[in-house]
């Protein structure tokens, strides 16, 4: 419930009813019409306020933070921290697998969860991706995918051969904080969406966070 809208809606309903009564009393159909129309507006605002659901922002933030810490602890226990490789494999359209391993991995060898490939142990996390359709080449598709994430105020994408440099300017504080962990929200989403956008495996080559600018260099394929 959102009290201010309930109050606003109820006030509009009461006032328009009073106007409607006055219009009936004085015989003014136009005023009665406007009152009835305003009554509908008040009713809509009242229903909106009474049935309003607060978003789960705070709960999701807490949950995300706990999940990042837990996965990092798991990665530590598996000996994947501090030296680890982040890879995003394309599972299907709209689904990618973010993998943290000790050495570069082959996407055909990994499944979601904790596993052991020929390159060593890994942790795989399925990420559902939403990549808006964009006309043009790899740059446009990557740009469209990164902009859709809204993790920063501006995104610059440069592609050179098999390497793509994704530069996030004005990164949101919480997104930047998440980069402390191998399963940090920003890194996971960036790589998973990049894999979906280019339609192939994406490996994080290097990254840098300076102030509110995050640069991720990824190798495609």
């Amino acid at each position: 419930m959102k009290e201010k809208y309930v109050l606003l809606g109820a006030n509009i309903v009461i006032i328009s009813e009073l106007f409607a009564l006055g219009a009936i009393f004085f015989g003014s159909p136009s005023v009665l019409g406007v009152s009835a129309s305003t009554l509908i507006l008040g009713l809509v605002i009242l229903v909106f306020g009474a049935t309003f659901k607060e978003p789960l922002t705070e709960a999701l933030r807490e949950y995300r933070s706990s999940a990042e810490v837990t996965l990092t602890r798991l990665a530590e226990d598996m000996g994947l921290v501090p030296e680890w490789v982040a890879t995003a494999c394309l599972v299907s359209e709209g689904k990618a697998l973010y993998v943290v391993s000790g050495a570069p991995i082959d996407c055909s060898e990994v499944v979601p969860g904790v596993g052991l490939s020929s390159s060593g142990p890994y942790i795989g996390m399925v990420v559902h991706t939403v990549v808006p359709k964009a006309a043009g080449g790899v740059v446009e598709r990557l740009l469209s995918a990164m902009n859709h994430l809204s993790l920063s105020s501006r995104v610059i994408v440069k592609v050179r051969g098999e390497e793509a440099t994704i530069e996030f300017l004005g990164v949101r504080r919480e997104a930047a904080d998440s980069l402390r962990y191998p399963f940090g929200m920003m890194r996971v989403l960036t790589l998973a969406h990049a894999a979906s956008a280019v339609g192939s495996r994406v490996v994080l080559v290097r990254e840098d966070l300076t102030g509110d600018t995050y640069v991720a260099v990824v190798r495609m394929g």
């Binding site: 159909p29 136009s30 019409g33 406007v34 009835a36 129309s37 305003t38 509908i40």
Partner: peptide, 12 residues
């Protein structure tokens, strides 16, 4: 100059 209440309601 619409004086029909039903019209106002329908439009709203």
């Amino acid at each position: 100059g619409v004086r029909d209440v039903v019209f106002y309601v329908a439009v709203a």
